[in-house]
């Protein structure tokens, strides 16, 4: 099974000599050279661990790799978040901590009580058995994954209430939460509302992902139906 194809006699001799001088070989960090890790075929519900942890696997529900979300990255063609609206990308478990689905459910239940709509094209929403209550498929609750994203959308006036709710529930679950908030810029390309509101709420908005507005609908069927 080993991919190294090294002469075992020479390897043992080098190890023996190195041991005598109290030094050891330091391998290059890379793919395991002895093929010690094997990917097993997983079945439901354990398969969700792979889908929500391996960025090379596509989320079938959204057709997107990674965490399976488009957010405002395609807002110029979807108009998912319009002027005056705010999209929230609430990510659990990142970076490198992981999260249980029961912890995600604690937050989705709290958000459901605010009567905020969950984004339909989102892998976590697809796994909900009751969106109005924010409950997930019970068979998933004892599965742990690397990270997952919950997406909701509200009017801009709701931002303080939603962020406060997420912050309070984050203290009750045993993981890390990373929040992104998005909005559509005005015709001049400015965001005069959300950024200043976030600063007022004591958030440091140093980094952002910016959609430059170069996307357009080009699919034949989509342009035809638009006409």
């Amino acid at each position: 099974m080993s991919q190294e194809r090294l002469n075992p006699t020479i390897v043992r001799a080098v190890r023996w000599a190195a041991g005598k001088f109290r030094f050891r070989f330091e391998p290059e960090p890379d793919i395991c050279p002895t093929a010690a890790f094997l990917m097993e075929d997983l079945e439901w519900p354990r398969i969700v661990r792979r889908v929500f942890s391996d960025p090379l696997i596509e989320h079938k529900s959204t057709g997107i790799h990674g965490r399976g979300t488009e957010e405002v990255k395609t807002n110029d063609v979807t108009d998912r978040v319009s002027v005056g609206e705010v999209g929230y990308v609430i990510e659990f478990g990142r970076p490198g901590v992981g999260v249980w689905f029961r912890e995600i459910e604690a937050v989705t239940k709290a958000l459901a009580q605010l009567s905020v709509p969950f984004e339909a094209k989102n892998p976590i929403t697809q796994l909900m058995d009751d969106e109005t209550a924010g409950t997930l498929n019970p068979g998933l609750l004892d599965e742990k994954i690397l990270s997952a994203i919950v997406e909701i959308k509200t009017e801009i006036s709701e931002v303080p209430r939603v962020l406060e709710t997420v912050s309070v529930v984050a203290r009750q679950i045993d993981t890390v939460v990373a929040v992104g908030v998005s909005t559509r810029c005005d015709e001049a390309g400015d965001d005069k509302l959300l950024a200043s509101l976030l600063v007022d709420l004591d958030y440091d908005v140093a980094r952002a992902k910016t959609n430059m507005g170069l996307g357009r609908v080009t699919n034949t069927a989509a342009t035809g139906s638009a006409r």
Partner: peptide
């Protein structure tokens, strides 16, 4: 002109 922007609020 920028179309949309998504701010990172960091890690909680």
């Amino acid at each position: 002109s920028r179309h949309s922007v998504e701010y990172s609020l960091g890690f909680d």
